[in-house]
Design a protein around this nucleic acid. Structure first.
Lengths: 133, 133
DNA sequence: TTAATGCGGACCGAATTCGTACTATATGGC
DNA sequence: GCCATATAGTACGAATTCGGTCCGCATTAA
């Protein structure tokens, strides 16, 4: 199965919760409570999403996180990229620096790029707003 | 990254090699030699592909494998399914029997089905023939 | 000054995956 | 009929990755 990391799955749940309270500052512990997910895990997810500029963070007492943009303008590819890196099926895909033992001599190497583009195009049409409903 | 198992990647390489010699019986060792992949690994891949009815096997001396259908009629989703199971991003997707701790109470559970369909549609348009060139 | 909250990194156990080996079964050639 | 060749199926060990947790530091409101 083309597997999405569990953390990415959780990230969507957390973001969906944030989208329903847009603009309001929510702490990691509050979000953990509302989503039913373990608090340390939620905290980790929020850090990653903040690093990917998907959400804004406010430090200090009474701090928290809030959505940076509208849910409708956040494609799920952005979420996946923030959590797992570029959306691409194979290591030898364009832009990846991962090594492949057959790099250069692989007859299908270049072909995957087209597949990845089709994949990105399909996923780019689904936004966070679609996941919230 | 939306990760494809390495074996699946290899499977496409092997199938591409078989497609260029369609109808000819090729043994696992021959394919290993031509693709430059380790022989035991190629043998394993061929077994999985045969189990998925993507290729036909002939046992005994001078046996081997050959493509069951034309490359153009084999979508890469079929390859992925043979190697890794159904194409779906999340465990809670339709048809999966995997358990999810939030099953039933998860607000985004149903939404993933649409994403998975978009994904399958995008990948179904790419066939093995496209990978060969 | 204190308490609350995010930030960043490190760490460990668990699960998955990769690659390999071994045995059984089938078939063609001598 | 026997042997060489080839696939079928199972099982296993090592390596990698992932999920989850913890700790010390930085920042800000009260």
């Amino acid at each position: 199965m083309i597997k999405l990391a569990k953390l990415t799955d959780y990230a969507v749940v957390v973001l969906a919760e944030m989208a329903s309270s847009r603009g309001i500052l929510l702490s990691a512990s509050t979000l953990a409570e509302r989503t039913g997910l373990p608090e340390p895990t939620v905290a980790k997810i929020l850090k990653m999403l903040a690093a990917g500029n998907l959400i804004a963070s406010v430090r200090g007492a009474n701090g928290g996180y809030k959505l940076e943009r509208e849910a409708a303008s956040i494609p799920i590819t952005a979420v996946i990229e923030a959590m797992e890196g570029p959306v691409s099926l194979t290591a030898c895909a364009e832009g990846s620096h991962d090594t492949c033992s057959r790099k250069g001599s692989c007859s299908v190497e270049a072909r995957w790029n087209g597949v990845n583009k089709a994949l990105n195009a399909a996923l780019a049409n689904v936004t966070l707003a679609d996941m919230v409903q």
